[in-house]
Write a protein that binds this DNA or RNA. Structure first.
Length: 285
DNA sequence: GGCCAGGACCTTA
DNA sequence: TAAGGTCATGGC
């Protein structure tokens, strides 16, 4: 990648391809980035605050020095992966072609393992605005302040598994997580104690990685698949939620599955998910 | 007031 | 193995 320029506290991605902030952050893969008063998305990833601006064909990463970019955000934004070449590997069908063109600015983030695990446990039988609210409260209550923006708003880190395990199940219930409180606590305990090693799934296949994560209470195939796709970058991971079920019924007569979509099934899934939600006027945030 | 949300678990047959 | 009920919460 030779289109990166460092200008002090700013990193410029010149003529960025396949990178639309609103698609990246509003396609349902992460819950911690919101638009600020300038219309730029901002949030904390891996303990570091960043603001993303689209400026013409360029993407500007504010508060991102060269070492931040090389240490975190190059990987976080999956910038070494050429998304334009992927659809040629997709099965050749009309809806997928349409959806992948519509969502061509989507990139799959490489989010922190624990944050993704915890977030998608919270996501179950829940809607996106409320998921974001719960996670915001969780971070404000148990995370560390990492950045104060020019509006005086404080941005917090995502609390570690140890901190959540120490806080206890009842503390999670106080955040209005409902029946998920015991699941969050079980995940935090297992990760904090080392019973679950979140580095493990990197070396495993999608199926084995899912099996491993499903040892945690409250983690089923859908949650595990989201974690493997959005934080382990397993592109063949294929999360099936209520939307994807509807999509498979509506456009594929219920006959398509992960195998049909192939080694980039997760990307297919994400393009279809985003497309169908926009078609139905579901506004995120 | 009932339905739904990026589900998982438990019981029943 | 499959189907159906249950679990908290809040927006609509």
């Amino acid at each position: 990648m030779n289109n990166i320029f460092f200008e002090g506290n700013l990193t410029r991605i010149k003529s960025a391809k396949n990178f639309l902030p609103e698609q990246v952050f509003d396609c349902g893969q992460c819950f911690r980035f919101d638009k600020n008063e300038r219309g730029n998305y901002c949030g904390v990833a891996r303990g570091k605050f960043i603001e993303i601006e689209k400026s013409g064909d360029d993407i500007l990463l504010h508060n991102c020095k060269e070492n931040d970019f090389n240490g975190i955000f190059r990987d976080f934004f999956d910038l070494d992966f050429d998304y334009s070449a992927i659809p040629s590997d997709f099965p050749n069908d009309e809806i997928l072609k349409k959806a992948s063109e519509f969502g061509s600015g989507i990139r799959i983030l490489h989010q922190d393992n624990w944050e993704a695990l915890c977030s998608f446990i919270i996501s179950q039988n829940n809607n996106i605005p409320r998921i974001k609210g719960i996670i915001r409260n969780l971070c404000e209550r148990y995370g560390e302040p990492v950045f104060t923006d020019d509006c005086g708003k404080i941005h917090y880190s995502f609390p570690s598994a140890e901190i959540i395990a120490d806080a206890g199940e009842s503390a999670m219930a106080e955040l209005r997580t409902g029946f998920r409180a015991k699941y969050i606590y079980d995940a935090a305990s297992k990760v904090a104690s080392g019973k679950i090693d979140l580095n493990e799934p990197y070396a495993l296949s999608y199926a084995d990685g899912a099996k491993y994560l499903m040892e945690i209470k409250g983690v089923g195939l859908k949650v595990a698949s989201c974690v493997l796709l959005f934080s382990y970058r397993k592109y063949d991971s294929f999360p099936v939620d209520v939307w994807v079920k509807r999509i498979l019924q509506k456009y594929y007569d219920g006959k398509a599955d992960a195998e049909y979509f192939g080694r980039y099934a997760g990307l297919c899934q994400q393009y279809l998910f985003y497309f169908e939600r926009c078609e139905n006027n579901v506004f995120l945030n």
